[in-house]
Computed example of a mutant assay.
Amino acid sequence: MVRLMRGEFAKLLSTRLWLWLLLATMALTALFASLNIAFNDDPDTLAPPLATAAGQRLLFGTAAGGAQTLVAVLAAIGMTSEYRHRTATTTFLATPHRARVVTAKLITYALTGATFGLACVAVVTAIAWPWLTARGIDPTLTGNGIPATVAGVVAAVTAFAVLGVCLGALLRDQAAAVVGLLVYLFVAEPIVTRISALQDWTVFLPGPSASALTRITLTDQDFLQPWQGGVVLAAYGLGVAAAGLWRTARLDLT
């Protein structure tokens, strides 16, 4: 397994896609955090005041929103590239146990997702600390539930990386996997979750579950408890992983 993981990291680092997506992720996080702080005093904002624990948790939770989509896209590309560039045959001939190959990709991109999450937390910290201090707000990384939020961010981004790999294994087509992820996360889910009549079940969707895991609070939307969000995300990951492994094991490469 270590050999397979080394190979997967070598494939990941062989192009600059991971770097561009990391930079884009950090830029998005910086934008989200800056907008959160800049417009927090607006009476129409949906965010709690930054002087409160809930407001600071929401601010640090933006790190997940900036990272999880692009990490999922990176992971999906990492899986589907095997089929797009027709290297799957060579890969599976070198390692006949196909489940081991998929597992190595899962671990590789899970670690990559955790790294992206930590990088985005660092961006939020670099922006929030001087800005909030200038406003007379005392930010903290050890209180107000911030450590749990940071852990939730890392866990949520890691989960989305796993989902990206599994979706790629399930669909195999790179365009379908990437476009499907973007349409769902940027269009379908935001629309559905804003329909108040559906909130009894939309809280169980991946995005709201990640928000619950990071302990986000909004004035117009309720979420699950953090542990429930973690369980739901884990269930999604296990379910899609099982489907992806099943499809990969029965794939005809001839």
Rank of each mutant, 00 (worst) to 15 (best):
I127C: 12
S34M: 09
Y184M: 07
V73S: 03
Q221S: 09
L205G: 04
K11L: 10
L245K: 04
L253S: 08
V102K: 00
L19K: 04
V123Y: 06
I191Q: 04
T69V: 11
Y83V: 03
L181H: 01
A114L: 08
L111P: 02
T112R: 00
A241D: 02
K105V: 01
V178T: 06
A134M: 05
A64K: 04
A241G: 04
L224E: 11
V157F: 04
A243M: 10
T45A: 09
K11V: 03
A188W: 07
T254G: 14
A33W: 10
L22M: 14
A114D: 00
M5D: 01
A51S: 15
V2L: 15
N36A: 14
T193A: 12
A88N: 03
L28A: 14
G66Q: 06
T52H: 12
T115C: 13
D222T: 15
V232E: 07
T193D: 13
T95L: 06
I146L: 14
V231T: 12
L171S: 06
L205V: 04
W20N: 06
L205C: 05
G229Y: 06
G229S: 12
H85Q: 14
G65L: 07
P190Y: 05
L181W: 01
G239I: 04
R84M: 05
A72L: 06
L23Y: 04
G113S: 07
T202R: 08
T95S: 11
Q68Y: 10
T108H: 03
A234C: 10
S34L: 11
Q68M: 11
F204L: 15
V2A: 11
G168L: 03
Q68R: 05
L59A: 08
A122Y: 07
A249T: 12
L111G: 09
V165Q: 00
L106F: 09
T52C: 13
A51K: 11
L28E: 10
A156E: 02
V157Y: 01
A197L: 15
I37S: 07
T149S: 15
A156L: 00
A212E: 10
D222M: 12
I77W: 06
F116Y: 15
L185G: 00
L21T: 01
P49R: 08
P147M: 13
I191M: 14
F186D: 01
C120T: 14
S209L: 07
G164Y: 02
T149M: 14
V231L: 15
F92I: 09
A119C: 15
L251V: 09
A63V: 06
S14F: 08
T52L: 11
D41E: 14
R98A: 07
T69C: 01
S81Q: 07
